[in-house]
């Protein structure tokens, strides 16, 4: 359940930002998470809801965007999706690949009112 730790950090950053926007209320929190981070969206939402209960964020919703793991082959230069974490180019079978996406873990934006 590293989702609890991640939810705590998300809340810390939101509170940090909202300190500079007094009088506004957070409705939606857009979070971008790469497949490689192995976060279970339902668990993260559960943790976020539980941790924000009876706080100023209690009616805010998490909007989680999962970014698929994609890479570019350093040998044949083709781009591809990585399936089941096999770090091999499906075209030329080289293992010399550069992961482009899938390691993200950041808060993109807040919708406020």
């Amino acid at each position: 359940m590293h989702e609890v730790g991640i939810a705590n950090e998300i809340i810390r950053i939101i509170n940090d930002i909202m300190g500079e926007h007094p009088g506004q209320k957070v409705d939606k929190v857009k979070v971008v998470i790469g497949e490689m981070i192995a976060v279970v969206p339902d668990s993260l939402t559960f943790a976020y809801t539980a941790l924000t209960e009876n706080t100023l964020l209690q009616n805010s919703k998490l909007d989680i965007e999962i970014v698929p793991l994609t890479a570019r082959c350093n040998v044949c230069s083709r781009k591809f999706n990585i399936k089941e974490f096999e770090m091999t180019c499906p075209y030329c079978f080289s293992q010399d690949i550069a992961v482009n996406n899938g390691n993200e873990l950041y808060i993109k934006e807040l919708e406020v009112s």
Partner: peptide
């Protein structure tokens, strides 16, 4: 709806 851009790493 107003949007605040964050772009901050969670960790």
């Amino acid at each position: 709806m107003p949007v605040i851009t964050v772009e901050r790493k969670v960790l």
